[in-house]
Simulated scan of single mutants.
Amino acid sequence: MRLAEPSEHSGVPTATTRYHLRERLLPAGHRITATRSAYDKEHLRRLRLVQALIQVGRMPVSAAREVLAAVEDDSLDQLARLGVAVEALPHGPEPDESSPSTAVARRTAAELLRRCARHFNSALADSSQAFGMLVAAIAALHHLGYACDTAPLLPHAQQAAQLAVVDLDLAEEFAIPAEQVAAAVALTVLYELVLLSLRRPAEAEESNKRYGSGS
């Protein structure tokens, strides 16, 4: 198919598709002549993934390029490929090491991981960006005086572990390893938005039951 066709099928303007090609977010087309290339269903699938990461997941182009490079890295096994891809995803702010709350948060995060070692022992090492994001969040809770010991955090950790099973089960519905990694990354980014979108009205409903009419 011509370059315009993946754009038409995906709803992405041709100019945007050309930009993704220049930024190496899409693989080059199959060369037909010196001035023409052809594109296939793989380009269409990748174009949709790129748009989901950038437009819906608000991922910077540089981060999306790094994630997609990991997806395509055949030198890595499936576990390493997925680990590199997920680690390349945008994360929250780094912990403020000058804050006294950060030291407390590190101890709390370490204890939380110890109690949930079955789920997070290898995935949330203390050198990972995700661990830093966890520490920063707990430190903010501690600084504000909100509950931030392991008791209120445990249910969140347990639910996260269950959601990880669901995500990877869905990703494994794809036959090709690279597609599985791409799906796992997309699900990580997009299902976080689904979770946030569901949590807010759920808390509003629970508030209504507790403090409102309950209707």
Rank of each mutant, 00 (worst) to 15 (best):
R22G: 08
E8H: 07
H43F: 05
S10W: 10
Y19I: 06
S10V: 07
D40L: 01
G29Y: 03
A38Q: 03
S10P: 05
H43S: 01
A15P: 10
S7T: 09
S7K: 01
R18A: 00
P6S: 08
R18W: 06
L21W: 02
P13H: 14
S37P: 02
R24N: 14
T35G: 13
H20S: 07
A38L: 00
K41I: 14
A15G: 13
T33P: 12
Y39H: 07
I32E: 15
S7C: 11
E23I: 02
H20R: 07
L25K: 01
R22S: 10
H9P: 02
D40C: 04
A28R: 13
H43M: 09
Y39R: 08
R18T: 09
S37M: 00
T14F: 05
R24F: 05
P6N: 01
G11R: 12
R22D: 12
R22C: 07
T35M: 08
V12Q: 05
T33I: 08
E42K: 10
E23N: 09
A38N: 03
P27Y: 04
D40V: 03
Y39L: 10
T14V: 15
A15M: 12
L21D: 01
P6H: 04
H20G: 03
A28N: 05
T14Q: 14
T33G: 15
Y19V: 11
S10G: 09
R24K: 12
V12E: 05
R31Q: 10
E42V: 12
E8I: 07
A34F: 11
T14R: 14
P13D: 11
L21P: 00
V12N: 04
R22N: 12
A38K: 00
Y19G: 02
T16M: 14
S7L: 01
H43Y: 09
R24D: 15
G29N: 01
T35E: 12
R31P: 01
H9C: 09
I32M: 13
L26M: 10
S37W: 00
L25T: 07
A34K: 10
H30M: 10
E42I: 06
E8P: 00
L25Q: 06
S7N: 00
K41A: 15
S37K: 05
E23V: 04
T35A: 13
E42A: 14
P27L: 04
R24M: 05
H43N: 04
H43E: 03
S7P: 01
L26D: 00
L21E: 04
H30Y: 07
T14S: 14
A28D: 15
L25C: 06
G11A: 14
T33S: 15
L21A: 03
R31I: 00
H30F: 06
T33Q: 10
H20Y: 15
H9T: 10
L25R: 05
D40H: 03
A34N: 11
P6E: 03
G29I: 00
A38H: 03
L25V: 11
H9L: 15
R18E: 08
R31H: 05
P27I: 05
A38V: 00
R22V: 13
T35R: 14
P13E: 12
A28Y: 04
G11K: 12
